[in-house]
């Protein structure tokens, strides 16, 4: 089932399918290892609900929900 990274709950895992859109944030995310086929684990949200922290390629990465909405996972 297709959903976005933003919809994962803390502790849930997903496989990255595709990052939609283009621009700075997308390139930055890809450089940091958010590329298709990689497993990602939702860790948690920041105290105010945004940004979020995920575990990817063995390290912790933080970015915003608005950008997580553009990342398709399964």
């Amino acid at each position: 089932m297709q959903k976005t990274l933003n919809e994962l709950k803390p502790g849930e895992k997903g496989i990255i399918k595709k990052i939609l859109g283009k621009g700075l944030v997308k390139r930055k995310l890809m450089e940091m290892g958010v590329t298709s086929g990689v497993e990602v684990l939702m860790r948690k949200a920041a105290p105010l609900g945004d940004p979020i922290e995920v575990n990817i390629r063995g390290y912790e990465l933080a970015f915003r929900r608005a950008d997580a909405k553009k990342i398709l996972v399964e």
Partner: peptide, 9 residues
Amino acid sequence: SPFVMELPP
């Protein structure tokens, strides 16, 4: 502006 950041151990 964008926010993509590593949280180092």
